[in-house]
Design a protein around this nucleic acid. Structure first.
Lengths: 264, 264
DNA sequence: AAGTGGTCTAGACCACGCC
DNA sequence: GCGTGGTCTAGACCACTTT
């Protein structure tokens, strides 16, 4: 392609949706992927790309910056790891919304604390069945290996973006017929309201993880993205296990706080 | 290079330190980066690559698998995100040790809980000075903007691998002369032993982050690696802020647990 | 000096979302 | 059906660690 008389190729590139993508350093050396990262990050910080906005396509950014596509993608991966952007499979890159604050010491349901933060929560039951306890599950619930357990799989949204998938196990002896209830809301509410079971103790464990095929598919993201795995065991006043829960969160969707008073 | 009469190029590759790197799927299609990931992960799971062991070089793995180096690196990035391996700058890739378990509801010092898990903790004071309170710090400590605060920067090791860097702020009025003490150990111990200050409340906040240049340099990793930022404010019985602490952890170095009993 | 990871280029083809 | 991201190749050069 030839350069027009009054506008060269670079000006042309900058006149598109990538307007203002000017390299801030010396003009001799090429963009590094961290330069490109900073460029995008600055656009987000300055509000030119608001939450939920879609970034220009990789090839547009490639043209605008003059860097190879691989370099642009390295910058995007970087920003993704930082939680500033996320992607929707083969659709594009988007500016990430602010994280939800989660406090494991409070026994609030997802529906409650997401709404309290001015965001819109939604829960979708994916699958409910009775399964046989594995060795691990048997140990946790104090039942024989192979004993029946309810297994509930749900997907939860924040502002219509899938933020986590969870698998919950419940002992049928504590809540017979549980699967006949509507589980597209607060499970805690159902257990308390219909079965009189109240949780008094919570054991929560959090660790960074990679989302496996199963989780990634459910969240409609690429397999292997970083996530946060939260395992929770909740007990009632008699020390019985009420729920055993595995939550796979998108790593950029939450922030954890704990407020603790010691002794007395 | 020509193939020898009795051993072709692939056999030769497998006779090196990458012995046994056989592709598990159909022989027609090429390795994907997830294939390579699985290959390496399997070697780690089977104990052929124990904790701390060094992986073969990227170019060796390239030869052994027949994939391009970029593909091998994509697999390594994957495993790094999962916390299975880590790298030492321009030295190589290593199998990651198991994470340390951290419970923010317990007021135990790093030195204590790391040792209790059979690992070797070490703390190294990097920098100590008096700084002027920024707006954020002034708000937290309840002092005027620009008021003096102690700023302490330390690096902490687990088994001689740098696992976190932290910046601690302390109000000099609570602990005058604090910087004259040895801070290569438990700061809590110094505050309690020399100043009679005991913490009764802790506010902890955790969020995934990317390690910036400053932190990455201190941990001798590449800038931009994923990390976990832990901010902690601790208070004494009078509600005064004892410490304000920012800890930047390598994301694979820890796992968080919280055990909570509710109500009474 | 040799070997390692770190970065970048310039292509290519594919699977899928979206129109 | 076009555009998107997803993946892969086959080089190159650099900065640093290691020997």
């Amino acid at each position: 392609m030839m350069a027009a008389s009054t506008t060269d190729a670079k000006d042309h590139a900058l006149s598109s949706t990538t307007a203002g993508w000017v390299k801030p350093r010396s003009p001799t050396d090429a963009y590094t992927y961290l330069d490109v990262r900073d460029l995008i990050a600055r656009h987000i910080a300055h509000g030119e790309l608001p939450h939920g906005a879609r970034l220009p396509s990789e090839r547009q950014m490639q043209t605008a910056t003059g860097a190879a596509r691989g370099t642009v993608r390295a910058a995007l991966f970087q920003l993704e790891a930082e939680g500033l952007i996320y992607r929707r499979n083969r659709s594009g890159w988007y500016v990430a919304p602010p994280p939800i604050v989660y406090d494991p010491t409070r026994w609030e349901s997802f529906m409650t604390y997401v709404a309290a933060q001015g965001r819109e929560p939604r829960t979708e039951a994916l699958d409910m069945r009775t399964c046989a306890a594995t060795a691990e599950l048997a140990g946790i619930f104090g039942v024989a290996e192979g004993a029946p357990l309810f297994e509930i799989r749900r997907r939860r949204y924040i502002d219509e973006r899938a933020a986590l998938v969870e698998t919950i196990f419940v002992d049928p002896r504590l809540a017979p017929g549980l699967l006949d209830h509507d589980l597209n809301g607060s499970l805690t509410g159902v257990l308390s309201g219909h079965y009189g079971i109240d949780v008094v103790r919570n054991r929560v464990e959090m660790s960074p993880c990679a989302l496996t095929q199963r989780e990634a598919d459910a969240l409609r993201v690429r397999s292997g993205l970083p996530g946060l795995l939260i395992k929770r065991i909740s007990y009632d006043a008699k020390g019985r296990v009420v729920e055993y829960d595995h939550e796979y969160w998108l790593h950029d969707a939450l922030k954890v706080t704990v407020d603790i008073r010691l002794g007395n």
